[in-house]
Design a protein around this nucleic acid. Structure first.
Lengths: 232, 232
DNA sequence: GATGCTATTGAGTGTGCGACCAATAAGCAA
DNA sequence: TTGCTTATTGGTCGCACACTCAATAGCATC
């Protein structure tokens, strides 16, 4: 056998193939960057020909935007799930900050920087970025609102509180490609400190917290096929 | 005359030509992005042939890195000069925040996002980004130290204070390509608020301040070497 | 005005990209 | 088994990019 060149073509349903393409692109976006989503790259990954990717995404820009949305949504769900049946708002928030400070968060930080930069040139992506920003704001605001309702947090503007926290997280994440080893503790802890301040919590309230009773998986499985609605 | 094709070549000293190239690249970086620094693009700006750019920068990556450094240094000097003979630390700091909140700052925010993203792939640029980050930290720290010495500010870790302020500014700047029109006031004001907090100042101390006696120019003139014919 | 140094050109190489489309064959239905 | 729909291929086009190098010509110097 001279080599591994694909001999037999495999024919899949458009829905399955499309989902497969988007998933692959999302993975590439997260690990290597949005500009690595090229027709050839994704095609290689799936052992098909570039033309097939074009067939599903006549404009490559749409695939990039879709990949970002999928990756970003998946990460958000992993960090701060929409359903929170296994703990208090304080616990979920504490978990959120713990994850945000970990090395694993660097990929997400990089993805956001990547998307924010690239959206300068790509209108389709720009819309998706704005959409995902809103989703992040909403998600965090919801947790805060829950905490306010339960009396754990105190703020008269949960949305402003959420955005302020996210601004700090973005600011800390900006350096995801650079060395951050010798940052002062006050800086490392900035996100938590900000949250404690805007939510009327005492120092340590978000770091010294019992873990969730039934820990949600660190990474949600990305909804195995079947659906995946139409992108742009 | 069929057209404007360059007829006569102009021979300049290597130093002058090199400076011209870097200046042009820095301007392009600031207005259009670092990936628009291509041999052809810069050559067109200067009405020379691409090969000449290669002659001065055998690796284009070096030009990109150099352009970023020059642009970034220039902007830092415009925002927060190293020499501050015409006012108090409070005044210079207030001016810094005023400029940072203006629309003109968007170009700089975008440049930083651009550089932070691109440095993921370009080691030379990465080093320059780290270097310029340090320069920003140092510059702000110096102003804070002056203010502490004069009794205007109060903090026991000027560097940590500086970095915290910059993290917030970075976080706010992350959205420079997106719409930010309907941000809560608390968010818009975050950088100033942070500064007032970490420097032990009352609310408004950095916004209600008399202007500098001899206002430094908002933008330093880039040494108009007689020529510079065509902006794109 | 002639000479020499070298800044600058012109022409070319190879790579990777998105996009396009007629031809092909997989797999379902009859 | 046959036929048909259409998912998939293979090939091609044009463009933009960085990089190379021998040939050319500006200009300072004599």
């Amino acid at each position: 056998m001279s080599s591994s060149v694909q001999r037999k073509r495999i024919r899949k349903s458009p829905e399955a193939r499309r989902a497969e393409i988007v998933e692959t692109a999302a993975r590439v976006a997260l690990t290597e960057g949005l500009e690595c989503i090229t027709l050839r790259r994704i095609a290689d990954e799936l052992a098909v020909r570039p033309g097939l990717i074009s067939h599903y995404f006549p404009s490559a820009e749409d695939l990039v935007a879709e990949a970002f949305s999928v990756a970003s949504t998946g990460e958000l769900d992993a960090l701060l799930p929409a359903e929170r049946p296994h703990g208090t708002p304080t616990q979920y928030l504490a978990r959120y900050f713990a994850l945000s400070a970990g090395d694993a968060y660097d990929d997400i930080s990089r993805l956001w920087i990547n998307a924010r930069h690239l959206s300068r040139y790509r209108p389709v992506l720009r819309d998706r970025v704005a959409e995902q920003e809103l989703a992040s704001d909403d998600r965090l605001q919801a947790v805060i609102q829950d905490g306010v309702d339960s009396g754990e947090f105190r703020t008269d503007d949960p949305r402003a509180a959420a955005i302020q926290i996210l601004v700090v997280i973005d600011g800390l994440g900006a350096h995801a490609s650079t060395d951050r080893s010798n940052r002062p503790e006050a800086v490392t802890r900035m996100a938590v400190t900000t949250a404690e301040r805007v939510l009327g919590l005492p120092y340590g309230a978000l770091t010294e917290v019992p873990a969730l009773t039934e820990p949600t998986p660190a990474r949600a499985e990305p909804t195995p096929t079947v659906d995946s609605p139409d992108p742009s």
